[in-house]
Simulated scan of single mutants.
Amino acid sequence: MRVVVEQSAPAGSGLRGGFRRVEGSLRPRLRGFLAWWTGALASCLPARVRDLFELSPRRLLLRRVGADLQLALWRGDDVRPLAGVPVAALADDGRDPLSALLAPRVADVPRWLVLPAATVLRRRLTLPAAAGERLREVLGFEIDRQTPFTAADVSYDARVLNRRGDDQLEVELVVVPKATLDAALAGLGPLASTLSGVDAADAAGQPLGINLMGDARRHRREDPWRRRNAVLLLVAGVALFAAMWQMLANREAAAEVFEQQVDEAVRQARGASLEKRRLLDLVEGGAFLQAARAGAPTMVEVMDELARRLPDDTYLEKLSVEGDRVLLIGLSREASALVGRLQGSPLWTSPALAGALQPDPRTRMDRFTLTATLVTAPPDAPQPATNAEAPGAAGGP
């Protein structure tokens, strides 16, 4: 049988109705994703570790078999029988009747009553995929048509069996009369108030995975790890913040050290560049001076040339060379002829008297001042020959 249920939004719902539909569609998907994610993470751990941290879904299943109550521990697809307890032996003294019979870790497991398969009515339906977001609410309108009961007379739940493509779901509606459920709960005596849910068994005796107990009757067990998990979560958040802050501080310190290293490297590079410039200047200056010295005659050569060209009755009081200018100051009996004697030298040019001749009454000679310009040649030019005798040259003074 195929049932198609369509509900139209009330007039005037507008944007608020759209938000409600979006919220209703996201919430079950988010819950399903979180359940899948935590289950996948827990499956990577050993079974003992999962049991230690209570990561495996576990239930304490209660089955009424005659006058006895059969206890079994359900863990995923595994059901392990524990013990059988007479219902009459359960004392109603305000304490948990099973706390003295079970280990503390098993006694704290959520307790579920499993009804026999004959006490429930099951119907398979095909619904649109959009109905999966509000499956229980949608099937609440189908109880009157699919079962001989009314919605007010039964407790019900639904589960998804299969998905047909992207637009259809195969679901199962499970109902139990409230009178039958109340009788089953009353038969548990003091344990009825400790139940977290009521499930039903299939033909093989395995739980269906539904909850036929209303929210008002469900026993809410406080998770003993809740506060510890909150503290651990807070500690983890603080540790994460501290780690990120420390990482940021380390990055800033490393950036400062790197900046100092860069500044030091730049300073050293600038110093090296300055030293290189100074060295180049010294090398170029030395090369220039050497080239200048190589192109200009030496003082020895100048003095030797003067000794060859000046007559014996000529005496020099001062000989100075400043740059390429030669200055001669002295006494001579042939002062007027000195310019002619100095001309034609390969070491200087333009010899001339600077000022008038001044007679010296003591030596009866003339005081003269002569200037000339030294000859400078390129470094690769041949040096002038200075060993040749100048015509008419006399010995030095």
Rank of each mutant, 00 (worst) to 15 (best):
F33P: 00
A203C: 01
G66P: 11
G165M: 07
A88F: 05
P57W: 02
A107Q: 13
R325W: 08
A151E: 09
R364M: 12
T126W: 00
A131F: 01
E6D: 14
R123G: 00
Q260L: 12
P346I: 09
F53E: 09
P177C: 04
A158S: 14
A307P: 00
R105Q: 14
P110F: 06
S350Q: 13
W348G: 03
A67F: 05
L61N: 01
F258K: 13
R2P: 04
S345C: 09
P351R: 06
A204V: 07
A47M: 08
G12S: 05
L310T: 06
T180M: 07
D157L: 05
K178T: 12
T363K: 03
P104E: 12
R50V: 11
F53D: 07
V198E: 02
A151Q: 10
W225S: 10
V49Y: 05
E284D: 12
E252V: 14
R228Q: 12
R163Y: 05
A307I: 01
A200D: 08
Q7A: 14
R277A: 15
A254H: 05
R221P: 04
V154G: 06
A292N: 11
R63A: 13
A377E: 11
D202F: 01
E305R: 14
D157P: 05
R293D: 09
G214V: 10
A152V: 08
L90W: 05
V171Y: 00
V375S: 08
S25C: 08
R63G: 01
D157G: 06
L55N: 09
L195H: 04
L331D: 01
D281Y: 10
E322K: 11
A42G: 09
A72T: 10
D366S: 13
V3F: 02
L71Y: 04
F53W: 15
P148G: 13
V283H: 05
D281F: 12
V262F: 06
T369P: 00
A67T: 14
E305C: 04
R228I: 07
L52K: 11
L30K: 02
D223R: 09
I210W: 00
R362Y: 08
R59S: 13
A100S: 15
E172C: 05
E284G: 02
A356E: 14
D78Y: 10
L55D: 07
